[in-house]
Design a protein around this nucleic acid. Structure first.
Length: 186
DNA sequence: GTACAGATTGAG
DNA sequence: TCAATCTGTACT
């Protein structure tokens, strides 16, 4: 199997497309000589400034969210609830505040289950923190994404409403911009 | 200096 | 379903 590192052209596309195509891709985190790998099985799209659930709603820029405006392929990471990191990958062109939240990973069978089964947990597992703010996934030596050429059929992708954003009102909270990969039957 | 949000989690 | 939990952010 050939492992291809995802390049800039993958990320610089419409956010909803990238969010769907990230499913089944592998995230690789290198810590010293150890390598942590997980398959992306759940994502969520945030499309500011029109998206009320986005931190960049109405084109707002703060020191916290400025990474969201970077060209696709960068990491936008921030803290929620004072304790959980959220890993986002920017998409689209420079100046477009769009990104994809990585919500869950599937780990190799050698690892305990549910170790990365939520946005906060996967960051804890991958040891991600503020030092990854604005990290470039196409250049970084410690974290990147790989295409292992696993075929994902459209029928395997489930779209549901996004989580935890009811404050954004019914219109935005009902957008089906959360994408999950159905469990493969082995 | 201080109020407060908050894209969660885990227990029930 | 629901509340505990705490630090960075964005105000005064």
């Amino acid at each position: 199997m050939r492992n291809k590192k995802l390049t800039r052209s993958f990320y610089v596309r419409p956010t909803l497309i990238v969010a769907k195509e990230l499913l089944g891709k592998y995230i690789v985190r290198k810590i010293g000589r150890e390598k942590l790998v997980g398959k992306i099985i759940e994502t969520e799209a945030y499309i500011g400034p029109q998206d009320k659930a986005s931190h960049a709603y109405e084109g707002k820029v703060t020191p916290r969210n400025r990474a969201e405006y970077l060209i696709g392929g960068h990491i936008y990471i921030y803290l929620v609830y004072g304790m959980y990191w959220q890993l986002n990958i920017t998409t689209g062109k420079e100046g477009k505040p769009e990104c994809v939240l990585i919500r869950a990973l599937e780990l190799p069978q050698t690892k305990p289950k549910n170790l990365a089964s939520g946005p906060g947990k996967l960051c804890r597992y991958l040891k991600l923190n503020k030092s990854f703010y604005e990290e470039d996934l196409t250049r970084s030596k410690r974290i990147w994404l790989e295409d292992r050429e696993e075929k994902i059929r459209p029928s395997q992708i489930v779209a549901t409403k996004r989580i935890g954003i009811d404050y954004a009102g019914p219109y935005w909270s009902r957008r089906k911009w959360r994408f999950l990969l159905k469990k493969m039957i082995k």
